[in-house]
Amino acid sequence: MLQLLLAGVAQGCVYALVALGFVLIYKATETVNFAQGDLMMLGGFFALTASVMLGWPYWATILFAVAAMAAVGMLIERVVLRPVLGQPAFTVVMITIGVGYVLRGVVTMIPGWGTDTYTFPTPFADGTFKFGEVIFAEQQVAVIVMTAALVAVLYVFFRYSKLGVAMQATSQNQLAAAYMGIPVRRVNMMIWGLSAGVAAFAGILLAPATFVHSNMGFIGLKAFPAAVVGGFGSVPGAIVGGLIIGLVEAFAGRYMPEGFKDIAAYVVVLAVLMIKPSGIFGETARKKV
């Protein structure tokens, strides 16, 4: 029982981080970035390159992958999305789907990456330790601790930093933000960078469990329900939603018939949306027309 709980939370953490990426961009720009999973995949490959091919230590790998992905995220905003600023949300959504395809394609073309599946070494390896009745896999504990640390840093960032507050302001009212002296476009670019950086972090945490391959981004399909359950547009909601989906999957895999695990996330989404259409942490206020 506790064993399942632990596995579910660890898996949920990864969902939570990808969902967080969705939410950050949605809040700021009111578009859904369907390339979020693929950004995570690319982050995984960056980490793989640094770690396996260049032999860097684990921590340097994380820093490198997050920084590189932040740059990629900003570049995508600047080059692909800013020119369509002001176009209907549908246009932007289609573009992000396209960006996802392109990223998947590009990865398979790069020598040394390709369509193969790679294992990703971590210092936590496969060790386990026993605490009472429960066996803790070091791997899972590491995922949970690192997610918690990242969330704490993000919390402080949004609460206290000038840039973090500016991001919140921009996501609530871009016009007013500009008149407060906030460079709205640059802040939007930073949000894409932040979101892609978080995705890279998620990719690194996920890599040991699922290996690194060009289709690992499809986990975005699981993180999306997590964001919806939490109430799209709520940062704490994304975390809680991710954990819920992770736990539900873990328990469904154990107690439900074969195959149910993969649809459990969507069943939860339907249930939550029936009871609370705006999601658990969703804002009840309707957008004024």
């Binding site: 206290y160 930093s161 407060m180």
Partner: peptide, 28 residues
Amino acid sequence: ELFEHATVLQNLLIGRHRHRRTALWQEL
């Protein structure tokens, strides 16, 4: 044009944006 989902105090504090001079690492 206000920041609707923030308090009055927070709205006014955002008005101080252009007077904030501290660096990111200091803030963190």
